[in-house]
Design a protein around this nucleic acid. Structure first.
Lengths: 201, 201
DNA sequence: AGGTTCGGAGAACGTTCGTTCTCCCTTCGC
DNA sequence: GCGAAGGGAGAACGAACGTTCTCCGAACCT
């Protein structure tokens, strides 16, 4: 009996669940979580309300599933962008080029976790927790990248702050050049701190 | 007939209006805009619903008034913090110490404009515009500070991105040390760019 | 003093929305 | 062929909320 493993696999593989989450992701991100009702979601996903509620017990559980989905997407895409870079310096700066492309896309509406936090954190502690976990993971990832490149852990924090600031500023002002400004700031930070020749522990 | 001037003065001076805006500010910031109903606001402000609607035509207009109020507060407090610093370098870094104090306060829940944008932008273009104007003004302010200190305008943008990133990250993760990390990043950026001895135009 | 206007408390109205229920049709095991 | 289970469409329900209305008392002007 491999119950636990099977359940987890099924969770991602179930095509019905997947269709719901993808439809919810598009609608929620484009219009906001509260602005999209269960009726609109059921119509967009092509799934009846009744069936929706057999797959998910509540709207909140769908929101959480969407946040999980976005977290995986973000982590995968960042990792892919980083993997394309050969030099440590390029790997540390890859995030800003990724952001630049994202900011220029028509659908860009800021970081979904920031939006979810602003919209739902007061009434859904679970959403607040997911947002915090996402930011914590991103921070750790940048710290790891920094250390692997021979820089201090704190440099990773600083690069994360620039990326975060670029996301919210670009979302609110619609100015996609923030990615480039963040990148140039990051380059300056790299030039200050001399990479240390230590092996990552 | 000095209609325009009088109207503007009255707008800020009217103590009833002021009481409503201050109560709304506290409630909205602590609980979110949608979470606070007009009943709750009328009770907290000690103003009957009827009177509320004689002063403001709608909830949206109250939200906008609160955003104006916060914008003035932010601008004033930042300016005061900057004014206490004697050196150009100190003036550029003052923002991060201000943020540090803010982040540590119990009531800190992030930037109200970011929250308002996430909660209301899709259904209230006026709110989206106010948020964009606020960020634009803050950006211009930092650019001006940078130029006055003999740095490039772009350095101001970079310092703004760090401040923005610190605000959202501190709000979501609850980690108030982001202000210090942003400050150290800013110090590093200052150390890279040599101040030019040009007079601000 | 008396009528009129203002304002307070809160009920009422209309809408939206999350969630559940009803009704009906389809499908499938036997 | 037939009864039972499942699922679709959408009505129904209850709660929340923005906004308006009702009723009533108090203050003010002449």
């Amino acid at each position: 009996m491999t119950r636990q493993g099977d359940a987890h696999l099924q969770k991602s593989a179930d095509p019905l669940r997947r269709r719901i989450v993808e439809a919810a992701d598009e609608l929620y991100y484009a219009q906001g979580f509260r602005a999209v009702g269960m009726d609109a979601l059921s119509q967009r996903a092509g799934v009846s309300l009744k069936r929706l509620y057999t797959v998910f017990p509540s709207k909140e559980s769908i929101v959480l599933a969407v946040l999980d989905y976005r977290h995986r997407m973000w982590a995968d895409e960042i990792a892919a962008a980083v993997a394309q870079e050969a030099t440590p310096r390029g790997r540390l700066l890859a995030i800003y080029d990724y952001l630049a492309g994202w900011f220029r896309s028509d659908s860009f509406r800021g970081c979904v976790f920031v939006n979810a936090f602003g919209e739902l954190a007061t009434e859904s502690p679970a959403v607040a927790t997911k947002a915090a976990e996402h930011k914590r993971d991103f921070r750790r990832y940048m710290e790891r990248l920094a250390v692997e490149a021979g820089f201090s852990e704190e440099l990773g924090d600083q690069l994360m702050l620039l990326a975060e600031g670029a996301q919210t500023t670009a979302a609110i002002t619609g100015d996609s050049s923030m990615a480039l400004k963040a990148r140039r700031a990051a380059e300056a930070l790299l030039s200050v701190e001399e990479p240390v020749q230590t092996q990552p522990v």
